[in-house]
Amino acid sequence: MIIWINGTFGSGKTTTAYELQRRVEKAFVYDPERFGYVLMANVPKEISKGDFQDYPLWREANYRLLKQVAEEYAGIIIVPMTVTNELYFAEVIGRLRAEGINVLHFTLAASKSTIQKRLWKRWEGKNSWAFQQSHERLKVLESDLFKEHIQTDEMSIGEVVESIAKLSGIELILDHRRGWQKKLDRLAIKLKEIGFLKQMKG
């Protein structure tokens, strides 16, 4: 089974993905974004595209690798990735489903003001790419194509995880961590992602 967690930038996809992984007996977080950064780092600036999703290679490679992992891995694959282009959605998620792979899709929805507050906490202001993209992507993700929608404005990460698990029909492991431990774990994930991005840009 693949659980695809969609949503605009700042919606909490990555944090939710890793928290869900912690609560599932056997699960793996597959991040298509990482391949995107590797791709971008190996294309000359003169011919590079503004968004790595615009490369057919990115879509084809993620489809093929996800298909292989899904067929060989006896666990749940969790994919945190923003996809708002209907064609790209069909080329990856649609093709996987056509191959008989069970792909459950969830969009983490929130109001514009909530998303902006979350982006500010990530030090992404009004001039950041994520901030400028968020409003248009929020509108696109309202489409029925991107169901199931989970309205997260008043939900904690734990509640979002529980909601996805319930809708997916999967059982969660009890979480015995204290509040401060959860915060440290989530901070570690953010620092890991920042370190990866710096490495790619370097």
Rank of each mutant, 00 (worst) to 15 (best):
A27F: 06
N127W: 12
Y88C: 04
I101F: 02
E86S: 11
I76S: 02
I101N: 06
W123N: 15
K121F: 00
K49M: 13
G100Q: 09
L57Y: 07
G50N: 14
G36I: 04
H105G: 00
N102P: 03
Q132Y: 14
P56A: 06
Q132C: 08
R23F: 00
I101T: 09
Q133S: 15
I78K: 04
V24S: 07
N42I: 01
H105L: 08
L65D: 09
Y63V: 07
V29P: 05
L108R: 10
L119R: 03
H105Y: 14
Q53C: 03
L66R: 06
V103Y: 04
R64E: 09
F89D: 14
N85W: 05
T107M: 06
V69R: 04
L57E: 14
Y37G: 05
L108A: 05
Y73D: 11
V103I: 10
F52G: 05
V92D: 05
S134C: 11
M81I: 04
L39K: 09
E72W: 09
L104P: 02
W123K: 15
W129G: 08
F35N: 03
T107Q: 00
H135A: 15
S111R: 15
L65K: 07
P32F: 08
V103W: 06
A109P: 02
G36Y: 00
N62Y: 02
N102G: 03
P44I: 12
R118H: 08
R64K: 11
L20V: 08
K49T: 03
R95T: 01
I78V: 07
A90F: 04
V103L: 03
I101H: 02
V29M: 03
N85T: 12
K117H: 12
V103N: 01
R118L: 07
S128D: 10
L119M: 10
V92L: 04
E91P: 11
L66D: 05
K126T: 15
T114Y: 07
S134L: 10
M40F: 03
A109T: 06
Y55G: 03
E91K: 09
N102D: 15
D51V: 01
L119V: 12
R95M: 03
W123I: 11
G50C: 08
Q68D: 14
Q21V: 07
E86N: 08
S113R: 14
Q132V: 13
S128N: 13
A70G: 06
P44M: 11
E25Q: 13
I93H: 01
R22Q: 10
T82F: 02
G75K: 01
Q53Y: 05
E71G: 06
E124T: 11
E99N: 08
A109K: 06
E33C: 01
S111M: 11
V29G: 00
L119C: 05
W129Y: 15
A74V: 02
I115M: 06
R22P: 01
H105A: 03
F52V: 02
D51R: 10
R97T: 06
T84E: 10
K117Y: 00
G50T: 02
K112N: 04
V79I: 12
K121S: 15
E124H: 10
I47L: 13
K49V: 04
M81Y: 10
K117Q: 13
W123R: 14
Y88R: 12
A27D: 06
K126L: 12
E60T: 00
R59W: 04
S128Q: 08
I77C: 03
Y88A: 05
A27L: 12
N62L: 05
A74R: 13
D54N: 13
